[in-house]
Design a protein around this nucleic acid. Structure first.
Lengths: 195, 195
DNA sequence: GATGGTTTTGCAACAAAGTGCAAAATGAAG
DNA sequence: CTTCATTTTGCACTTTGTTGCAAAACCATC
């Protein structure tokens, strides 16, 4: 539902071929909306048919030939109207939270800790990547344009989301680590069944 | 991918009919994984065929007749093995962040503020709901079971996620509010083209 | 005991997202 | 100039999620 808009945004920032778009979805845009090259090509086709984008230069062979796309006025308008639309906040839908709940229900999840630590590491790496981008692209300046501010707050969103995960994972690990505290007063010490 | 596991978890916590499950997906479980009743019935059918759950008592008419499901050992095992599986952290995929970026690209988004404030309100309400659940279900006690701890950290996850959104939305609103600061030194005052 | 509303279950069609695979062009190596 | 790997594009299939609608049971009322 948002993929076409993600693509329009990317193409507005810079006209690109399908492959370039794919690469850009592995960086910037993709940090907030992922897509494989297959999805992208499919959507490019639809957007072209809808008259929202067009192929840039001359050659028009069918396959294997690079095609650069640019956004047409209709596409820009569609994107602008999407921006102004009202949409309900996306509800949380996270498998990890669900898995913890399932662990509570089954009484299992012996080595959840390892998985949590693994996620913690990954989120730390992602946070570092975002911080690096912020350092590079948003040096502390006054008088920045509205556009720059928008891009910056989006990045801040990514940064704070990663920070949230890191904090939550850390809390969760320590909460599950100290004193498994069984309901019946049993104090299982180092036995591996704390999980 | 996770829906069957969400259902198994819910049924482990308490055997239910499709309709009861639907209601429970509007509360607890649904806070982390949403599903409509149609999805739920479809999935119940699959889970039954897979031998993961079964209809509880006697009557077996076809339609309109209430059916209570319970989890079978095979279902519990499937769930437990899912808990122990490794899964990559789910990447961020949020339309609102994307929309801000689109606003930067189109130069539009005149009344984004209103939408941001609306989301802020909704997240505050959700946070209040979570806090209420926490107050009711997790009074400050020592010696809680591992299961309770798990359920509690999941709820904390929800609470902190909502807190993140509230903080980010507030920051974003104030960042976009003060001095639109155009790049060329132009200071557009109340003119609506700040967007 | 027919009628009409509500509850509970479910099918069917569609839309969006994810995966596997291959065709046309391009370029390098023998 | 043939062969082979690589680049770029794209089709086809599958799964997952969403929406619209309806059938069977159940319940009340006339």
């Amino acid at each position: 539902m948002s993929l076409p808009h993600a693509i329009l945004t990317a193409l507005l920032e810079k006209p690109s071929s399908g492959l370039e778009l794919t690469r850009r979805f592995d960086r910037s845009i993709g940090y907030f909306w992922q897509a494989t090259h297959q999805q992208i090509y499919r959507e490019l086709g639809k957007l072209e048919q809808a008259g929202h984008i067009r192929v840039l230069p001359s050659r028009q062979p069918t396959r294997g030939q690079r095609k650069e796309y640019e956004v047409l006025p209709a596409g820009r308008e569609e994107l602008a109207s999407w921006v102004d639309r009202r949409e309900e906040p996306r509800a949380v839908r996270d498998p990890l939270l669900l898995r913890l709940r399932a662990a509570a229900a089954t009484g299992g999840g012996a080595d959840l800790d390892e998985e949590l630590r693994r996620h913690l590491l990954l989120h730390r790496q992602q946070l570092a990547a975002y911080r690096e981008i912020e350092r590079r692209d948003f040096p502390p300046e006054r008088r920045v344009s509205r556009e720059d501010r928008l891009r910056h707050v989006v990045l801040r969103g990514g940064i704070e989301l990663e920070s949230f995960w890191i904090a939550w994972l850390s809390d969760t690990l320590s909460e599950l680590a100290d004193g498994p505290g069984e309901p019946d007063g049993v104090r299982p010490d180092a036995t591996a069944d704390g999980a």
